[in-house]
């Protein structure tokens, strides 16, 4: 495996391999000195063409714990607006001679295009609405740790599926691993023919959450209201917020997950967010384990 462009093209074994590797890094991350020399002398560029403090920080921590030399390039908005073509951007990055490029971009497919033309490993840190593979992997890792497997699980995915790369990557991953995914959200947020991705489409969350082992909430973006996706926050939270009452419909110890940053009181109630079933903070710490595993497996520590 040279690149991590998405979950779509991974198979079950590759996914399990990443999760199992992450276990080792989890152990390392429990120690006082959380550093391994694995990627010493290797150069990793974090190219974030869209703001994301969380994902970028998580990658940076993972890279530094593996002793890689890391550089951050943050581009506010599109490079195109500055008159630079994508080809120029790529050549500039290439000239820095990285071993890996971690890329976040608001346009779907950019990581794949970079992989086609650049020599280094490309790690997709989120492209458009398409994929966010490391998020799905850390979500899977969290589920696997807590529930011991995936086969036969029911996972409810609630909210803005349309604009969510997290949702797509999770759908690929969970269905590949034998879980059943039920989605729910306002009709404006359900993308066309999504059922062909192997999920069950429900309307209201109560149907998707019924007997679920995992309830995954997605962030609703405030500014989306102006795009005619929902009437207002008040109505959204009335029908789509995860409340303690809704959560009762799930299995007794169902996990509550959220890729963050969460809007308290909009898609998730405070009580649920801070409640016993919530594994939201564990997701964050697992993010580092999983990203270390991905970097380790792609760059392998060797000089190839």
């Amino acid at each position: 495996m040279k690149h991590l462009l998405g979950i779509e093209n991974l198979n079950k074994d590759q996914i399990m391999n990443i999760l199992e590797t992450a276990v080792h890094f989890n152990e390392l991350n429990q120690r006082l000195i959380k550093k391994a020399p694995t990627l010493k002398g290797r150069t990793i560029i974090n190219f974030f063409a869209e703001p994301s403090t969380r994902t970028r920080t998580s990658f940076e921590v993972a890279e530094k714990r593996l002793s890689a030399d890391t550089y951050n390039i943050a581009v506010s908005g599109s490079a195109i607006q500055k008159g630079e073509t994508l080809a120029d951007t790529v050549l500039n990055l290439q000239a820095m001679g990285p071993d890996a490029l971690v890329i976040r971009h608001s346009v779907s497919g950019i990581p794949q295009l970079l992989a086609d033309i650049m020599d280094c490993s490309i790690i997709n840190a989120g492209d458009g609405f398409r994929e966010h593979p490391t998020q799905a992997l850390l979500d899977a890792y969290t589920i696997w740790q807590k529930l011991g497997g995936f086969e036969g699980l029911k996972v409810a995915l609630i909210g803005d599926i349309y604009h969510s790369r997290v949702a797509r990557s999770n759908i690929y991953l969970l269905t590949k691993m034998g879980a059943h995914v039920s989605i729910a959200g306002p009709g404006t947020m359900i993308p066309k023919e999504v059922e062909k991705m192997g999920v069950t489409v429900e309307k209201l969350p109560k149907y998707a959450i019924q007997d679920a082992d995992v309830v995954m909430m997605l962030r609703v973006q405030n500014e989306r209201a102006s795009n005619l996706l929902y009437p207002d926050i008040r109505e959204y939270s009335r029908y789509f917020m995860l409340t303690p009452e809704l959560l009762k419909l799930a299995k007794k110890d169902a996990l509550v997950m959220h890729p963050g940053p969460a809007n308290r009181g909009v898609e998730i109630d405070d009580v649920v967010m801070d409640g016993e079933q919530s594994v939201i903070l564990q997701q964050v710490s697992n993010g580092v384990n999983v990203r270390m595993a991905v970097l380790y497996l792609l760059l392998g520590g060797s000089d190839k």
Binding site: S108, G128, F129, P191, K192, E193, V194, M197
Partner: peptide
């Protein structure tokens, strides 16, 4: 919109 709306716009994550 970037492409036709349908299964592939869903999968490729583009506005249809």
């Amino acid at each position: 919109a970037q492409m036709n709306e349908g299964y592939y716009s869903t999968v490729y994550g583009m506005t249809g």
